[in-house]
Design a protein around this nucleic acid. Structure first.
Length: 270
DNA sequence: TAGTATGTTGGCGC
DNA sequence: AGCGCCAACATACT
């Protein structure tokens, strides 16, 4: 499920459901999850923060321990699931009024839930947040366009590099690059300040749009089963570009698909 | 049955 | 050092 907007919507839900509430029971249904999670019993949730796709729940534990969560590909948190609901990996029961329990579901089990020492550890290795940092053209040019390897790096690879800019995923790259009118496989060295400025605006636009459809929902849906494709170019191969009408192209780079319009997003360096 | 999937990590060759 | 590429992780769906 998760790119930044879904993770932010999840953070918002968990904050509303659990802030100020005490854990009375931790049920570790997936033995692959760390035993240390059981130390949450008796702790009170203080609040949930996010950086990129990582979540951190502060508690009132004396040792400052923080619950670190990463949703992987299919992770999600729900409140009070039906008991027979599949793929429940972790269930946290809470005392007092509000949802009885928070449940972590993860079909593919590529996500993480573990106790770490503090928030710094939970966010270790992550760059600036793609939304909260509101990166300017200058910041993007520096964070994504510089450093060793910039001579050969593609924009897509740099946008996906969580230690540079945290939060964008494979879908976001196609969307942001379309809004910016830049080819995702462009070499970063070929980008001028105007292109970085369009990217800054494109990232903001993508996040604004997707956040609007995810925030405030108990169950956060994405491109998954059933629903209409909410994206502008992602998974729209062959459909007309919403700007110029040319067919949207699908291409694979580094094992991951990109969608773009060759007319609106000409590749100058490729 | 093969191909696909929103994420991350680690190996390989350059 | 750090690219791009690929496989692996584990599972469901088409």
């Amino acid at each position: 499920m998760p790119e930044l907007p879904e993770v932010e919507a999840t953070r918002d839900n968990l904050e509303r459901w659990s802030a100020g509430r005490r854990v009375v029971r931790v049920e570790r249904r997936d033995p692959a999850l760390e035993e240390s999670l059981e130390r949450l019993v008796g702790a009170r949730f203080v609040g949930w923060s996010r950086r990129g796709k990582a979540l951190a729940a502060k508690t009132d534990r004396a040792d400052g321990a923080v619950l670190h969560v990463h949703l992987g590909m299919t992770g999600r948190w729900v409140r009070d699931p039906e008991p027979e609901r599949a793929h429940q990996r972790l269930v946290i029961e809470l005392a007092g009024p509000g949802p009885r329990c928070l449940a972590y579901l993860d079909v593919r089990r590529l996500g993480t839930a573990r106790l770490v020492g503090d928030e710094v550890e939970a966010f270790e290795g992550l760059g600036i947040d793609a939304r909260d940092a509101r990166p300017s053209a200058e910041v993007l040019a520096r964070v994504l366009g510089e450093g060793a390897g910039a001579a050969s790096a593609t924009l897509k690879a740099r946008l996906l590099d969580q230690k540079r800019l945290a939060g964008l995923g494979n879908i976001a790259v196609s969307e942001c690059c379309f809004f910016a009118g830049v080819h995702p496989h462009e070499r970063v060295r070929a980008l001028g300040m105007k292109a970085w400025a369009r990217l800054a605006a494109g990232i903001a636009e993508h996040l604004e749009r997707t956040l609007a459809t995810t925030i405030g929902r108990d169950e956060i849906a994405y491109v998954s089963e059933g629903g209409d494709n909410p994206f502008v170019v992602y998974a729209r191969e062959g459909e007309p570009c919403p700007r110029c009408g040319a067919p949207i192209v699908r291409a694979v780079a580094g094992g991951r698909v990109s969608f773009f319009c060759v007319r609106c997003q000409p590749e100058v360096s490729g």
